[in-house]
Nucleic acid binder design. Structure first.
Length: 300
DNA sequence: TTCTGCCCTTGGCA
DNA sequence: ATGCCAAGGGCAG
């Protein structure tokens, strides 16, 4: 006889707009997959991910509720609070949307993608995923993340599916540049290995950045190999509650140049960032989420 | 200070 | 199929 599975199930009432598919597959997080079949009951497919050390699958259950299954099991209300944190249901989303919708471009995109939510990702996993994003593309980033997990993280199972924990800083540091190159990281391998060593040795406490001001936390991140202004902003926005962080990648740069600097030579990124913070305000990162991740969703 | 070329490979697309 | 090239930056010079 097999032992009973160690798992939790539950439902989470949602009183805010939350589009699971848009939020989980918009390029913020890099470890979510979704079932190819929609289940046939009108609730949409299950989305599978690993958060807070657990393999979880989640889907809408009607308009105002999420349904989830997770393993290993949690205390009765723990998974609820994990999900509320992950989807940032503690944000005052109405106030934030009202604020950023002061810009007409943003207002249009908020209107079209109201259920798109910023995620609160684990800082370590977030940091490595965005170091891997340099001069890369989303399918490849996903592949890199799954390769690291599958080779260096521990297994988790749920409903017959097996996924893997994202490796700890110690594990990635021990693996080293060579192993990471063999996993397909290319020139990013030494960045990941060195950053892992720094974090594993306790020279940077990522969680402590959550309580620091935006610029100070950004400076700490930029000290890491493979982390410049753009990737620092990604980590700050998507994992460390710095809602004013505004990552400027090539696509954001092109669009901002076209929309807000027509017929001009666009300013260098450092100046463009200052402009964005001034123009979009304290929730600039939320503005970017709707402008650009929403735009990507429309192209697919 | 600002700007250029290079870095590993993989996907995406003629 | 095959070849080309851009790809969600960072870094050194």
């Amino acid at each position: 006889m097999t032992a009973p599975p160690d798992m939790s199930t539950g439902r989470l009432p949602i009183e805010q707009p939350l589009d699971l598919a848009a939020s989980l597959h918009s390029g913020q997080a890099h470890r979510w997959t979704r079932d190819s079949d929609a289940g046939g009951d009108g609730n949409g497919p299950w989305h599978w991910g690993v958060i807070h050390g657990r393999l979880i699958k989640i889907r809408p259950n009607g308009p105002g509720e999420l349904e989830f299954r997770a393993s290993p099991s949690t205390a009765p209300d723990e998974m609820t609070s994990i999900l509320e944190s992950y989807f940032r249901l503690d944000d005052d989303i109405q106030s934030i949307l009202q604020e950023v919708a002061g810009d007409p471009q943003v207002a249009t995109m908020v209107d079209r993608h109201r259920g798109l939510r910023l995620l609160r990702i684990d800082p370590w996993e977030c940091l490595i995923s965005f170091i891997c994003s340099a001069n890369s593309n989303i399918p490849r980033i996903h592949s890199n993340m799954e390769s690291m997990a599958g080779n260096l993280g521990g297994p988790l199972s749920l409903d017959g599916e097996v996924r893997y924990l994202f490796p700890t800083p110690q594990r990635l540091a021990e693996a080293g540049e060579g192993a990471l190159r063999s996993l397909g990281l290319g020139f990013r391998a030494p960045y990941v290995a060195k950053t892992a060593r720094i974090v594993a040795d306790g020279h940077l406490d990522l969680e402590s950045l959550r309580n620091m001001p935006y610029l100070g936390a950004k400076a700490c991140l930029e000290d890491l190999p493979g982390v410049g202004p753009k990737i620092a902003d990604c980590v700050l926005l998507h994992s460390l509650d710095k809602l004013e962080a505004f990552p400027i990648d090539v696509w954001v740069r092109r669009a901002l140049a076209e929309w807000y600097f027509p017929g001009q030579k666009p300013p260098p990124n450092r100046v463009m960032l200052e402009w964005a913070l001034e123009h979009f305000g304290p929730y600039a990162g939320y503005a970017e989420l709707y402008l650009f991740h929403g735009r990507r969703l429309e192209k697919k």
